[in-house]
Computed example of a mutant assay.
Amino acid sequence: MTFATMGRRGFIKITAVAGGTLLLGGLTGCGQNGSGGGSKGYSGDVAITGLASLIHSAPFFIAQSEGYYEEEGLTLEHIQFPGGLDTVRGIDSGIGFGTASTIPVFIAAEKGMDVKIIGNVYTAASVDFITLPDSPISSIEDVRGKKVAVSTPGSNSSYFADRTLRAAGIIPGEDVELISVGSASDSWTAVSKNVVDVAWTASPLSEKIASDNGAKVVWRSRDYVTDWSDTCLVATGAFIDENTEALKGWGRALQKGMDLITNDLEKAAEVYGKAIDFKPEVALEALKNSQNFFSLDFTDAQLAAVVAAGKEQGQITKEPDMDAVVMRNFFS
């Protein structure tokens, strides 16, 4: 996997506004104003992997839409990045903080980037596997002799397909064929055209496809992976030094968003659905399936699991210095 530098103008700025509309435009600059956070205020960009397409984004939309950012003196623009490595590069190249898949942060730290994990976000393996409503495949055991779509070699979908199938006693390349097809939407197209038998996807798209097309979930990676940190909060050391209180306020705002998901699921789903332009019932089903997996806290087992996965894929080549990368008590 390469670590090429990518300019910030190539990314997308997404701002949640009243009524749930998503405004898309070219990214022009950080627009940061102030450095203390809290009562001093902070204005700037925040980088988020898969903002509009992955369930871990729900607390961010809720925090913005419900005024939790404003309560902490924060004016934040959500910047969507297509993948974890891209997000980390964006954080390191000037944005300063954001949310990325956890494995890429350890990869970046090994490469010498000044990035630190300050909190967890989503603690479940996020990849799901779905099929057509009339398919004879109803469980993971039924995929023997079939074709399963993944994104690309080395991707999360490829890793979790391999790991979950092996956990079920099914050997990729022998008992089942993994086919690289690209994005989750491309994966569903491949199933619909009978190119493959099972598609990879991730919530909330899993629930949307089920609602729109009657797709059925065959298995979820979380059924086989119990300790995991899928996405985490990240900042550069320099940004942490200059904006500690702003980051702590950001954590408090996100915790309020997570608390709303826990305590008032219907209200949370209404806000989230408007933000991503999904039907309320689809957003509700997506959040219901993920309700127990939002947390700012991590465990040693979760961190060890993602490092082990990175090593297995050859993305991490040595044991990281956890104390140097992970700030365990930042939000305490």
Rank of each mutant, 00 (worst) to 15 (best):
A268D: 10
A268G: 12
A268L: 01
A268P: 13
A268W: 00
A268N: 08
A268C: 05
A269P: 01
A269F: 04
A269G: 00
A269H: 04
E270G: 12
V271C: 12
V271Q: 06
V271F: 15
Y272S: 03
Y272R: 08
Y272L: 09
Y272A: 05
Y272G: 01
Y272E: 11
Y272C: 05
G273H: 09
G273T: 14
G273P: 02
K274N: 13
K274H: 10
K274D: 08
K274W: 03
K274A: 13
A275C: 12
A275V: 13
A275D: 08
A275M: 15
A275E: 13
A275Q: 14
I276V: 14
I276R: 09
D277P: 11
D277I: 05
D277G: 06
D277M: 08
F278H: 13
F278I: 08
F278E: 02
F278M: 06
K279G: 06
K279L: 11
K279A: 14
K279Y: 15
K279W: 13
K279P: 07
P280W: 11
P280Y: 10
E281K: 04
E281S: 13
E281V: 06
E281F: 07
V282D: 10
V282S: 07
V282E: 06
V282L: 12
V282K: 07
V282T: 15
V282R: 05
A283D: 01
A283C: 06
A283N: 04
A283R: 04
A283H: 06
L284Q: 04
L284M: 09
L284Y: 14
L284K: 08
A286G: 00
A286H: 05
A286M: 13
A286S: 07
L287R: 04
L287Y: 03
L287I: 10
L287T: 05
L287S: 03
L287A: 03
K288C: 03
K288V: 06
K288N: 08
N289P: 00
N289W: 07
S290P: 15
S290T: 14
S290K: 00
Q291Y: 00
Q291S: 10
Q291A: 14
Q291C: 05
Q291G: 02
Q291I: 08
Q291P: 00
N292M: 00
N292T: 08
N292H: 05
F293L: 10
F293W: 13
F293T: 04
F293D: 02
F293N: 08
F293P: 01
F294A: 06
F294V: 07
F294E: 03
F294K: 10
F294R: 05
S295D: 14
S295W: 01
S295G: 12
S295H: 07
L296Q: 06
L296N: 03
L296H: 00
D297M: 04
D297R: 12
D297H: 09
D297L: 07
D297S: 14
D297V: 14
D297I: 11
F298T: 07
F298D: 00
F298W: 15
T299M: 00
T299D: 00
T299L: 01
T299H: 02
D300L: 00
D300K: 02
D300S: 06
D300P: 15
D300A: 01
D300N: 09
A301L: 11
A301D: 15
A301K: 14
A301W: 09
A301I: 11
